[in-house]
Nucleic acid binder design. Structure first.
Lengths: 266, 266
DNA sequence: AGCGATTGTCTCTTACAAGAGACGTGTGTA
DNA sequence: TACACACGTCTCTTGTAAGAGACAATCGCT
């Protein structure tokens, strides 16, 4: 470890999953873990630290990193022995965006919305069963509420989560949330049944508002983006201070729903 | 093959390289080839076609695709059995951009420059020894000269190529170009010595202009972006009609060099 | 200088993933 | 109805890549 800092944000999915023993691990998985680890830490990491952080043998890690660097998925960072994402990933990412109308237009709508309202606005999607902020535009308030794009958050913590699951039946929903997901950051525990009720309500009303869920100061307004009738592909949401007036909340919600609906005509 | 179309743009690096025999291939490499293949074709591809296109066994391809989809690097495209890039790649790509000042600022400069001049403007870098368009902004002419980002082009075909190699000695340059690279699209053959002279001249003057190299109708103006004194990290370039007047060319070049210099202060 | 920790490379073994191929199903067409 | 061809899944074998560990070189500390 170059600095005293411990490696925070260790994604539990990366390291453990079901681990039969100290058995061998496939190279591809190791490589995927490396990418995930770099993403979680958002900075260049030394190869040794990478091996430590992932419980991977040093020799293997060196080999993999070399291959990934040659392929252009990783690059050696300036000072010499640290690695971070490479140009190839940037290119693939741009290709994804080009090939994905919804994402491309969604980013624009979110940027516009946050400029018009001054509030933080986000585009969210499901990513392998978890809620994910795909694009976020910070807004102009003196104290911004910002969250990193790519952050994965338990579905029950968010308004968007309630909408994203609106297409599923009870069994489907249960399969998507673990017991841990129902525990909020401040320790409160949600009831699964309440959550399912929320989802049903969100499906009917076509929007969802939550207050003080992930933290005590914010309210979250979300509206669904449909890729097909009944199929929620994404959500747009606004993150506003919890003391925002009823009236303004109503205005914002109407605007948000209009924009989300516009995105849906795909 | 779903449609009658043949798979064009088969990247020769992907399929052959040195192939000892019908020997086994590492899973990671196969996966990297899949990504490269999708990038070359810029569209969703069926798993069967993927296997064909990469000379990979069908069973292996199914397994790999499943793993990559689970990891989020790939996604099943709408209709069911085709795959394309996934959200994870988008996120990694954005992380790369965030972590890379030069790229982030370079994109902005390029966009600005193309808006101000109305000409096509590009940001170029070296990517594992090849010239690559990292970002491109189309300009406002009725007939646009556009090239896909991520396209890899032989270094001797471009003005930027001459600048990107400005930091290398003769041996270094020779290592970067093959005989094939010296043959232009219209069949003309460049002399290696002429190319090396061009590079030396570009190093001294701090810019490079080429006319009618990749095609007969365009002129290419390029200026270097330095990451350290003498180290060319990228180039900005303008693609203009070949009959652009001396005077306007001079103006554009001056503007281009100013902007590239601004990027260099890093 | 003396010590411990880290870095990058290399060798050798064996656990296991890549691949061949069979199977059942679905789809288009003659 | 029969045929040819794709798709998706499964099983079994064996070639090989993951991993353990040794090594020299370098770094940072006292």
């Amino acid at each position: 470890m170059q600095d005293g800092e411990t490696l925070t944000g260790w994604p539990s999915e990366v390291a453990d999953e079901e681990r039969p023993a100290g058995s061998r691990e496939k190279g591809l998985n190791r490589a995927l873990n490396i990418l995930e680890f770099l993403h979680a830490n958002q900075r260049a990491i030394g190869i040794g630290d990478l091996a430590k952080g992932l419980n991977a043998p040093r020799s293997t890690t060196y080999t993999l990193v070399r291959e990934l660097v040659e392929a252009g998925l990783l690059e050696m960072a300036g000072d010499g022995n640290r690695v971070y994402f490479g140009k190839k990933l940037y290119l693939y990412g741009m290709a994804y965006m080009r090939g994905n109308d919804l994402l491309r237009r969604g980013r624009q709508e979110v940027d516009t919305l946050s400029r018009e309202t001054g509030e933080t606005s986000e585009l969210c999607m499901l990513q392998s069963g978890r809620y994910m902020i795909v694009h976020s535009s910070p807004g102009t308030r003196p104290f911004r509420i910002s969250s990193a794009t790519g952050l994965q958050i338990p579905l029950p913590w968010t308004a968007s989560g309630r909408l994203l699951l609106a297409g599923l039946d009870r069994a489907g929903i249960e399969a998507m949330v673990t017991q841990d997901d129902l525990v909020l950051p401040d320790g409160r525990k949600l009831e699964l049944d309440d959550f399912i009720d929320d989802i049903a309500r969100a499906r009917v009303t076509g929007y969802c508002v939550t207050s003080g869920l992930v933290d005590a100061y914010t309210k979250c307004l979300a509206a669904p983006v449909f890729s097909a009738p009944g199929k929620v592909e994404a959500t747009m949401c606004l993150v506003v201070p919890i003391d925002t007036s009823e009236e303004r909340t109503g205005e914002l919600l109407a605007l948000l729903r209009e924009r989300a609906a516009r995105l849906s005509i795909s």
